[in-house]
Write a protein that binds this DNA or RNA. Structure first.
Lengths: 212, 212
DNA sequence: TACAACTACCGTTATTAAACCCATTTTAAA
DNA sequence: TTTAAAATGGGTTTAATAACGGTAGTTGTA
């Protein structure tokens, strides 16, 4: 009887201690089973492939070796569109949240969440297909308000985190230095920043560029 | 009988899931008790103050609100020099390891450690007063080899992560621009970096400057 | 269809950063 | 005590960056 109602969870996280924490917490809830645990995205995909029964929900860490959260979720969407995904991340900045949800996640939780939130998120995703991550977004250390950047500005910001000169960035983006400087000035304005060093820090601190 | 031999552990980590993982793993070992769990350094210090029996070992996360790992360990050393400390960190870069050990930690573990290592570390620290963190250091994403920086170079590197010009950094450090440029060039040389943007990235990626 | 936003480009000027050259003094180590 | 390294300062030259000022085509949408 009971088995019939069990919600199957798969966990992918490269921190064994974290996996233990997540799985023990979920085990303490009623009606959940955790048939799959993986150390990274690639392992997760392999285990799901071999599994007789698909998990209902995958809990994905964002930063993992081999396949990170973003890559893993795309692979899952491609192969098993019915599987729901709950993203879990240390870096609760607006960008990784948006990117994760844009990649097809059904919900997002920062890692400093508590067991109650985890239970609520899993239930919401299972029964409604979606968990409102509002709270996670409210606590972000990300951009202050509704700062909007254009695609090209973000692209430029990423290239900024390198030793390329603006001229070289222009070559990479297929535009002139002047245009690059235009994007720079727009970002300076929006972010109240006055130097490239400031842009680099902004990008790294807000997860626009990965730390590692 | 058994109680007599129990090793008391205190845990400070701002991630409830992580605390759950750590405590469940330790509970599965023989001879350990976890009387204290705190969400940050300040809470930990308060709880120890009120506690009748001092913990034998504190497990400290490095990045925490209120009192971070570095600050917490200094406070512990000041008040209760007998308490041993095991540092635990997401950012396993050489700098935070060195800084933690220099602050008085008896051992260091990266968070992607497994239960066996945790047990070994706790036992080693309790019985020998020290856990050889060699393995953690080997896996660091930090400086390639035994890169050595001088005090002033590190100081300069921190000021680099700002919008100050070299001239302003010189004013701050009480030296001329030329000298600042000297430190910059020394770092460029050692790190094979050619721009300030590169220095900023190096400092943030290696924990010389905090991400948040 | 206006209008806003994004994209792309150009010029001028001042400041900063970077790539070299170099010397002196102090401190630490061999 | 010689040697090495660190900390400090200087000069020159070139390249990159930053702060202004613009124009024009495209795209999306109210």
């Amino acid at each position: 009887m009971k088995d019939k109602a069990l919600i199957n969870i798969a966990i992918a996280d490269d921190h064994p201690i974290m996996r233990k924490g997540i799985s023990d917490i979920i085990s303490s809830f009623e009606g959940f089973s955790i048939p799959i645990q993986a150390n990274d995205g690639r392992e997760l995909i392999e285990q799901i492939s071999k599994s007789a029964v698909l998990p209902d929900i995958c809990i994905l860490d964002i930063s993992m070796p081999n396949l990170n959260g973003f890559e893993t979720i795309k692979e899952i969407r491609k192969r098993w569109s019915s599987i729901k995904v709950l993203a879990l991340s240390m870096y609760n900045n607006e960008f990784s949240i948006i990117k994760m949800l844009a990649s097809g996640a059904n919900g997002y939780l920062p890692k400093n969440t508590n067991p109650q939130h985890l239970q609520r998120a899993l239930a919401a995703i299972y029964y409604t297909g979606y968990y409102d991550s509002e709270q996670a977004i409210k606590n972000t250390s990300g951009p202050n308000q509704q700062l909007k950047f254009t695609e090209r500005e973000i692209e430029f910001l990423c290239h900024c985190c390198s030793e390329l000169s603006y001229r070289q960035i222009g070559d990479l983006m297929g535009i002139s230095v002047r245009t690059v400087e235009g994007y720079r000035d727009a970002l300076f304005d929006k972010l109240d920043i006055k130097s490239r060093a400031g842009l680099v820090m902004y990008a790294l601190r807000n997860g626009i560029m990965p730390i590692e």
